[in-house]
C-alpha cells in the first residue's frame, strides 16, 4: 500500500513536471521542472529496488547534466523576454502534439495488458556490489567503451565551444 501510494505520487509529480518541461515559458523553469522529474523518477527507481540507479540518477543527471544545462542557460542569459519575440512553439505544435499523444496512447495500449508480476528479488538487488560485480566482469568491454565515448565527448565539447584554438 505504502509502495503503491508512493509510486503514484512520484509518477504524478514526474508527469506534471514533464509537462512543465515541454510547455514552460522560461528555460530555467523548464530545467528546474526537469530536475523535479528526474528526482521523482529517482524515487520510482528506489521503489523498484534500484538503489544504485537512483543514486546515480541524482548524481549524474540532477547533479551534473542539469547543472550544465542551467549553467549554459545562465551563461547565455536566456530570460523569458527572449522568447516573447518569437513564439515558443513551432508551427508543428498541433500535429506534433496529436502524433505524440497518439504514440503515447498506442504504447500505453500495448502495455496495459502487460500485467505480469515481478520476480521476487533477493537482498542486495540493485545494490552497489551486484552492479559492480556485473559491470566489471560481463560488461567490462561496454564499460571501457563508455569511457572512450566520454573522452571523445570531452574533447569534442572543448573543441566546439572554445572560442579559438
Amino acid at each position: 500500500m505504502f509502495e503503491q501510494t508512493m509510486f503514484y505520487l512520484f509518477a504524478i509529480v514526474s508527469v506534471i513536471a514533464a509537462l512543465f518541461v515541454v510547455a514552460g515559458k522560461n528555460p530555467i523553469s523548464c530545467a528546474i521542472a526537469l530536475i523535479v522529474t528526474l528526482g521523482a523518477l529517482a524515487g520510482v527507481f528506489v521503489l523498484q529496488e534500484a538503489h544504485f540507479v537512483a543514486t546515480i540518477q541524482v548524481l549524474v543527471y540532477a547533479g551534473a547534466i542539469m547543472v550544465l544545462f542551467v549553467f549554459v542557460i545562465m551563461l547565455l542569459n536566456l530570460g523569458p523576454e527572449d522568447l516573447e519575440k518569437t513564439p515558443r512553439f513551432s508551427r508543428l505544435k498541433g500535429a506534433g502534439g496529436i502524433f505524440a499523444a497518439a504514440g503515447a496512447a498506442l504504447l500505453a495500449w500495448n502495455f496495459v495488458s502487460y500485467a505480469a508480476r515481478a520476480a521476487r528479488v533477493g537482498p542486495g538487488f540493485g545494490g552497489l556490489a551486484q552492479i559492480s560485480q556485473k559491470l566489471f566482469t560481463e560488461y567490462i568491454i561496454p564499460f571501457e567503451a563508455i569511457s572512450a565515448v566520454l573522452m571523445a565527448a570531452v574533447v569534442g565539447a572543448v573543441v566546439i565551444a572554445k572560442r579559438e584554438l
Binding site: E3, Q4, F7, A11, S14, V15, A18, L19, V21, V22, T37, V44, L47, Q48, A100, A101, G103, A104, L107, A108, F111, V112, S113, Y114, A115, A116, R117, A118
Partner: peptide, 18 residues
C-alpha cells in the same frame, strides 16, 4: 507491489511528452 505495466505506462507517457 506496483505491476510492471504501470511503470511501462508511466514510461510511455513521459516518452511521448519528451
Amino acid at each position: 507491489m506496483v505491476s510492471t505495466s504501470h511503470l511501462l505506462i508511466l514510461s510511455a507517457v513521459l516518452f511521448a511528452l519528451g
